[in-house]
Every structure is written in structure tokens, then in C-alpha cells.
Simulated assay, not measured.
Amino acid sequence: MDLDAYVAEHQGEWERLEQLLRRRRLTGTESDELIALYQRAATHLSAVQSRAPDPALVGRLSRLVARARAAVTGSSAPSWLTFARFFTVGFPVAVYRAWPWWCGVATAFSAVTFGLIAWFGTHPELAAQLGPEPAIKQLVEKDFANYYSEYPAQDFAAQVWTNNAQLAAICLFSGVLILPVLYVLVQNALSVGAIGGVMVAYGKADIFFGLITPHGLLELTAVFVAAGAGLRIGWAWIAPGRGRTRAQALAETCRAAVLIALGLVVVLAISGVIEAFVTPSGLPTAARIAIGVAAFAGFLTYVVVLGRRAARAGETGDLAMAERGDLAPTV
């Protein structure tokens, strides 16, 4: 390749591309011209690199092509901005907009759980029938408390996080079927209620609530949010609302649910750390409960303040219009 002749032949195109890149606004014709010149410049750069790799010319064309590519495709936001927007807008508004669902789940779960605790706690003879007496005494006197300190804290935190994440995932992503979510919730409410009732019946209410409260407030709230978001998906399929097809309603609700799932990974990690390091610690019961209440109140404040602000600004927790894909016209 005769490099001087090649430069002389295409110099005018490169200069014209530079002129267009310096303009703040382009007409439709100029935009088409910019795209065409960008494609040619990219071809020229490839040819120079493969046939006559002059460092100065390669550097000039590389900068020109990079500027043109940014002008044609647009610049993307830095990854840290996307990350920050997720935690300040996307996740809190998705949880906030689903609050009727997860608050309803929390209310029903609490009613069943505390009802069982009160029933078994005031009827010790029924609590004693839940299992063999030696097994009940072993649970009350040793197993319940030892569960939180049986393994090294870091291993226990990872185990708790994994189990809770699986439970939340089942509630969230089986929501379209509704019944699996209800089954998981009922099973867990019966389990917590029965164990709590036995502890209360045998005079160990202080141990039960002292150990389960620090991490349970945040942990169960995360499960309630997942279950509520899952049931919301199922209801979107049953009753999509006016102006939406079932497919559209399901897609919109599922996209918001994905944001909730990603955010709950962090929430469950925090509750796992509390369960592994705070619950079995030697801190006074009041201090451990205060830590749990602070984490729970912090999460609710975070969702209400940032979620409500984002909702008032028109955010829905859904993807931007350009990222949702095309929709077929419907009548």
C-alpha cells in the first residue's frame, strides 16, 4: 500500500467526519452522512492496520473512529451509576409499589404464627403431643439455642443465606402458579408457630423470642417481600387490568420482580450476618434485639423514603422504554 496516496485519497472524508463530530446538532441528512463516514473510517483503520501500520496514522484514525462510534451509538452511563441507581431507585420503588402484597402476606403469616404460639402456649397438653416427650425436652432445653452456635459463624452465615435465598426464590418465581407460594408460607408459619408454642408452653418464651427476634424481623420481611412480589405476578396473569394483555402485564410484573430478587440478595445477606454473629453472641438480649430492630426499621425506612420518592417521580421499577423490546399493536 502507498500510504501517502491512501491518505491523500481519503483525507477529505476524515476531515468531513471531524467537522460533523464538532457540531452539536445535525440534520437528518448530516446524521446519515456521519454514519456513512464513520463506517468508511472504520474500514480505513482496518486496512491501514493490516497493510501499512503507521503508528501516527493508526492513532489518528483510532481516535476518530472512537469519537464517531460514541456519537452514533451514544455513551453509556458508568457502571457505578447503574449500580447506584439500582439501590436508590430501582429496588426501593419495586418493593414500595408491591407493598399491599407483601404487607398482606406479613399480616396473614403473623396471624397464623402468633395464633399457634398462643394456642400451644396456653395448652401445654397439646404441645406435649407434637412429639415424643424426650424429643420435646431436647428441643426446648438444648437444640433450639444450640442451633445458632453449632457451626462456625462464617459457615453458618453462608448456610443461612443460601437457605433463605432459596426460600425467597421459590416464593418469588413460583408466584405465577400462586399455590406453591401459599404452600411454602403455610408450612413455615406452622413450623415457627409450633416451635414457638412449645417453647412458650415449657416456660422458654424468653429464649425463643430473644433468639429469633434479632435476625427474624429482617429475614422474614425479606421472605414476605419475595412472596408478595410472587403473588403479584400470579395476579397480573389472572387480572392484567384495563389496557394490558396478560402477556404485557406478566412481563412488566416479572421485570420488577427481578429487581426485587437482586436487592433481596443483599437484604438476606445482612440478616444472615445478624443470625450468625449477633443472635448467638454474648450480648445482652436487649442489645441483640435492638440490633435486629434497627436493621428492620432501617430497611422499612429505606423502602418508604426512597421508594415513595421514586414513585412520585414516575418510576415503576420497570426497564426503560428503549430496553423493553417492541410490542405488537393490539386493539
Rank of each mutant, 00 (worst) to 15 (best):
Y96T: 03
W102M: 07
C103Q: 03
G104F: 08
G104I: 01
G104S: 02
G104E: 05
A106S: 15
T107G: 15
T107F: 15
T107H: 09
A108M: 14
A111R: 09
A111Q: 03
A111L: 15
A111I: 15
V112E: 02
T113L: 11
F114K: 06
L116P: 00
W119M: 07
W119V: 08
F120M: 10
G121Q: 09
G121L: 09
T122N: 14
T122K: 04
T122L: 10
P124V: 08
A127T: 06
A128F: 07
A128E: 13
Q129P: 05
L130G: 01
P132N: 11
P132G: 10
P134F: 07
P134M: 01
P134E: 01
A135E: 12
A135Y: 13
I136L: 14
Q138R: 13
Q138L: 14
L139W: 07
V140W: 12
E141P: 04
E141F: 12
K142P: 00
K142D: 14
D143V: 10
F144P: 03
A145Q: 10
N146I: 00
Y148H: 12
S149G: 14
S149I: 02
E150F: 13
P152Q: 04
A153Y: 03
Q154P: 03
F156H: 11
F156A: 12
F156R: 10
A158P: 00
V160H: 04
V160D: 00
W161M: 08
T162P: 00
N164G: 05
A165G: 07
Q166V: 11
L167S: 15
A169C: 02
C171L: 11
L172M: 11
F173H: 03
F173E: 05
F173A: 08
F173M: 01
S174Q: 09
G175V: 10
L177T: 09
I178N: 01
I178P: 01
L179R: 06
L179D: 01
V181M: 04
L182Q: 11
Y183T: 13
L185H: 01
V186K: 03
S191P: 00
S191Y: 14
V192S: 08
V192E: 05
I195K: 15
G196S: 00
G196H: 05
G197S: 02
V200W: 05
A201V: 09
A201Y: 02
Y202F: 13
G203P: 10
A205G: 03
F208N: 10
G210A: 02
I212W: 02
I212V: 15
T213F: 15
T213A: 15
P214I: 08
H215D: 11
G216H: 07
L218T: 12
L218W: 10
E219S: 01
L220R: 08
L220V: 13
A222L: 07
A222C: 12
F224Y: 13
F224L: 03
V225D: 09
A226N: 04
G228S: 04
A229I: 01
A229K: 12
